[in-house]
Every structure is written in C-alpha cells, then in structure tokens.
Write a protein that binds this DNA or RNA. Structure first.
Lengths: 234, 234
DNA sequence: CGGAGATTTGAGATGAGTCAATCGTGGTGG
DNA sequence: CCACCACGATTGACTCATCTCAAATCTCCG
C-alpha cells in the first residue's frame, strides 16, 4: 500500500547522520567488534511519519527502540481519554529497553512526535547476546541506570517545582554554563515541551510569559535569555 | 558513643526474617553459590533508628542499599527547604543502585522512615563482580528494569490521576483481585503514604474522606473496602 | 496568498498546598 | 492499670497553581 510505504519503511540503509547517532548510543559505544556485529544483526531501521503509532500499551513486546532522528512520545491514557506524557525521546535515547528483563507487554503507548528514524532491536536476541557478551551487558546496565536517573529526576521536578521553574530549568540545562546572555533553539514544537514538563500547552505558554520579567524572550522556537545567572535564581 | 551505637550498628548477624528477605531480593535470588558468596563479601548490614540520615544529596557514593526491614524515604530539597519524596523503599527494595554505572554522587537524600535494617553493598566491588559473573550482571539488569518501570509508573500516576484516584489505586493494588469486600493494613504511617503518592498529609486525609462515599473506611492503619469492584470504577 | 494547525490569551473551575486549630491515639511512666 | 503527653491525623479557611474550554492570533507550508 502506498500509505504504509510512506509511514513505515524498514531497511538497513542509514544516512550518515543516523549512522553516527547510532554508533554514539551508549548502547553501541565501546563494544568489541564481535559484540557490535551481533547487536547489528538483532537490529533493523524504520522510518516513521509524524503521529504514527509505534506500539500501544498492552501489546506484546518483541522490540525495543533507539531514536536516531526525530522525537518519540511515550504516554498513557486515562479512562476518559486524557493523555499524559511520560517521556519524550530524542536522538540517542532508548525506550522500552526496560522490557529486556521485565514484563512482556509494553507498559505505555509510543508515537512518533514528528518524522523519525528509529533503530529497533529484537528483545529476545539482545537478551541472549547480553548473557554471553559482557560488554553488551554492561552497556545495557549503563543505559538502564541513566534512564532511571533521569526518570527519578522527572518525579522530583514535578513534585518540587512550579511551571515557570521547570521551564527555567529546561532552558538552563541547555545554556552554556557561564552567566551573561544566551540563546537556544527548541528542537521541537512547544506542545511537545509542554508534555515533557507535565504541563498543558496553555500552561507552558503562561510560564513563558511569566519568565519574560526574568529576561526570557520567546519567538517561535528561538529562546533568548538576557542573563543566565539571573535566571538561575529562579 | 552511646547514641551512635543506638542509631547505627554495623555487623553481619542477621535475624532470620532479615536473612530471608535478603535472599529473596531479586539481587541475590538465582545466583550461583560462588556469585552469592562474592556478593556477600561486598555486603554489610546496618541498623538505623527512625529519622536517621543514610546519605545526603551530593555526597560521594560508595555504597548502594537493599532494605531488609523497615522503610526508607528518598527525597529532594528545594531552595526554600521544602521536601519532595521521590520514592519510599520497603523490604526487598534497592536504592542508589543506579550509581553502579552512573554519576559518583548520590542524587537525593535518604533517610530511615522508621527503625530499619539495611544491607549495604560496595559499589566498586559489585561493579567488578558484575563484570565477571554473568548471573550477577543479569540480576543487576533485572533490578534496574523493575525500578525503572515502577518509576515511570509513578510519573504517569502523578500526571494522570487526582489524589483520591491515586489513593484508590494504592488500595486496589494491595487488595485481593476479585470483587466484594476486602481489608488491608498500612505498613507505615499515613504521612509516609502521602509522600509516596506525592501529596501533603492533609491532602491524603481529604482523599480518604472523599473515598468514604465509595465505600472506603479508614481507622488508624486499617483500611476496609466495602466492594473492590465498585472502587475500581474510580 | 490561503488555510490548517499551533500558540496565545481570557475567564472560570478545580485540585492541591499552607497555616492553624483541634482531635485522636499510642506509648511512657507513675 | 491509668493518666498524661507528644505526635500524628483531621478539619476548616484560604491561597495559589494549573486545567479546561473558548476565542483570537500567529505561523509555517504549500
């Protein structure tokens, strides 16, 4: 079908950029040649159009994923159909990797938030490889640790900070560390950032306008900060 | 000092209950005899009095922990001194294990929420053991996966549900699965449950009284549910 | 240039936090 | 065994943050 060819396309041809992201994944860096080859044999690549569903909550899990380009949204649905984002994955991020040693069904929905290229890994095969190749097992542990750390951070941020504070944190994490002026560019739509921070889009908008008096200017995806060290005092 | 002997006491003598919990930890179940012995050699046991601090955010991390009895509170502080719980660990739970392959400082505070017995593991040593013994590496991956899954669940719950819904979820997770009446007993103070659900104690109290009209009765630590399947429709 | 979708703004409703006072309970010591 | 005390839990009053719905605007793409 014309449609499915456009929205999902599996092959092993990678753009140079995608290949470079792939090899820089904590998942594949520092592996022996042999381990790398084995991992690549468990891997495929797919292209996804914006809003394309990757998997649904409750589906049997056979693959986990690594984002090469674009962004992916992981979310849950309430009974009434309200959506809550759990995590936004960008280039280099891995998701559903916790199923390597956990349940056998996906615990949330995943959807391409924009056109995206993903590497898929066969869970069964990687589990096998990890049990034989120490460097792969170590890579898995590193990825899991890092993911766990950022997720606990997310809980803490949600519970400790207000919307403007969370937005300020997001900006500061992406600014050159010194004081003075800085400017960054959002890599995605604001509605995605809102979900990432656990906010409704309207709340993000209002948070930005609150931050105006702290020297933050927003025009489209461009964000300018008059004085980074000033913003750091919340 | 009399005081420190009372609040912190390191030895290798375990009560039968503690030993049984320890061996049932995902961390130590299913290991070969040799791996088990090596893990035990990286381990100590400590007793802690209520409110005793276990480590502070930013401290250099040399140990990770497994709760044998009692409860431990992991939390962050805001500038103004407000506390936000990130996780409550009970018997069998592991914490700071994400530092095996991550940063080298603790990313949050840890405190005994009541008298507790903990197993401590030397991070450096376990890292070494995991790199040599496959079954240990696998155990680490299982623990990390499970922890990650529950933490993502926590984010989803916080973002999707109101206080009464979160409390209902907590109760339902601990009820026999069928319908009809049920009763459970809280294993700790209500203020701890409040923190676990990301609520102020007052909010938990109000949530309980909201749930009264759904057939939930609370007296001290005892919770009675008139009809489980009824409560399940939020 | 047109238009669909994204973003902003306004107004109102609601959920949850804070502070303070009261109530209940369990543990301690007489 | 009882009385008391200290601390946890509840309740009320109020404030604040964020969501929801609706309308107005903006922006980017074709």
């Amino acid at each position: 079908m014309e449609h499915s060819a456009k929205t999902m396309n599996s092959n092993l041809k990678l753009s140079n950029r995608d290949r470079s992201v792939l090899m820089k994944t904590p998942f594949l860096t520092g592996l022996s040649t042999n381990s790398t080859l084995r991992m690549l044999s468990a891997m495929s690549v797919v292209n996804l159009a914006t809003r394309h569903s990757i998997f649904r909550e409750g589906e049997r899990a056979e693959l986990f994923y690594c984002v090469l380009s674009g962004y992916v949204r992981l979310y849950r649905l309430s009974q009434e159909g309200r959506e809550a984002d759990i995590r936004i994955c960008g280039p280099g991020d891995t998701f559903a990797e916790c199923l390597l040693y956990g349940e056998d069904t996906y615990p949330y929905h995943a959807q391409a938030a924009e056109n995206a290229t993903l590497a898929t890994f066969d869970i069964q095969m990687v589990r096998e490889i990890a049990s034989e190749e120490k460097d792969v097992a170590q890579a898995v542990m590193m990825v899991l640790s890092r993911h766990l750390l950022t997720t606990m951070n997310c809980v803490a941020n949600d519970r400790l900070f207000t919307a403007p504070q969370r937005v300020a944190n997001y900006i500061l994490e992406r600014c050159p560390v010194d004081g003075g002026p800085a400017s960054i560019r959002l890599p995605f739509q604001k509605s995605l950032l809102a979900g990432m921070l656990g906010l409704a889009p309207e709340a993000l908008s209002r948070a930005f306008s609150t931050l105006r008096k702290s020297g933050v200017t927003v025009r489209g995806r461009a964000i300018q900060v008059m004085d980074v060290s000033n913003l750091r005092n919340l």
